[in-house]
Amino acid sequence: MRARRAVEVAFLVAAPLALFLLLGELALRVYLRTHIFYDVEMSRYALALKVDSPNPLIGHHHRPSSEARLMGVSIRTNADGFRDDEYPVARGEARRIVFLGDSLTLGWGVEKEETFEHLLERALDARTPTEVVNLGVGNYNTTQEVNLLLEKGLKYDPDQVVLFYFINDAEPVPQKSRFPGLGHSRLVTFYWSRIKALRARLSDSVGFETYYSDLYREGSEGWARSRSALSQLAALGREHGFDLRVVLLPELHRLADYPFAREHALVTQHLNGIGVPVLDLAPFFRNESDPHSLWVSLDDAHPNARAHRLIAEYTLDFIAERGRS
């Protein structure tokens, strides 16, 4: 009798859960045929295009020669795993620039032709023949960006390297998920994402402003590693004879009263100290009264096509200033 009761209790716990997971997954997949969730798309990005790198300082890179439709746009990678055209390693006469960065440089959420990388390449090429090789990979920090340059970028023998720095570049190298299979479930991804959003809504301590500011606290390991990677990049520039520049991309939540001015000043101060020209774009966006008009979508604060156009416009002269030193 007691055993039968235990079976009934187990059934009443497990059966509704299993049924809900099955029906919820089906319902969500039907809903997502016509709607886009940022976190689900990021999870799909990881599964479709990211692979482990044998180099722990890189962590992950893009699967070469692959394509996925993410956030409503196509992302196609070349034989090196870059979201770019195929460039021969041997140089021609054109000036060659390598862009380093994360998902913003990759052009997450915008078509390739709308990315600031593409717009800058076209504008620079109109002045003097120029090729821009885009090494932007989602979720990269400065350490990963510099190590990707070492592993795959230097062979292109660039005249110039431009690193597009974002406030989260001082994060530690991201770790692989402990439960990689769960990313296949849209329902699990939805719950993971929404519970995170709920916590942020109920507590300021887990919001993005506190999180990003904390990356630059006195003694922060991530910021120390980021500084070290920037110094390493400057040394590489001297060794290989390329002109190095850094562009600080703005975080697009609050532009009129920018909350990360102190953090941008810290990065600028470090770059000035090691002799690297830097352009902070945050002040250029100060007069944007509606930050959401620059977002890919309401649940995704990556820059949209308009923001990419502005970034390209504000950055053009800074990049065009100099060629090979």
Binding site: N139, P174, S177, G183, R201, Y212, A301, H302
Partner: peptide
């Protein structure tokens, strides 16, 4: 969006 960018690797 109110949380930092985060990604499943």
């Amino acid at each position: 969006q109110t949380v930092p960018f985060e990604y499943e690797i």
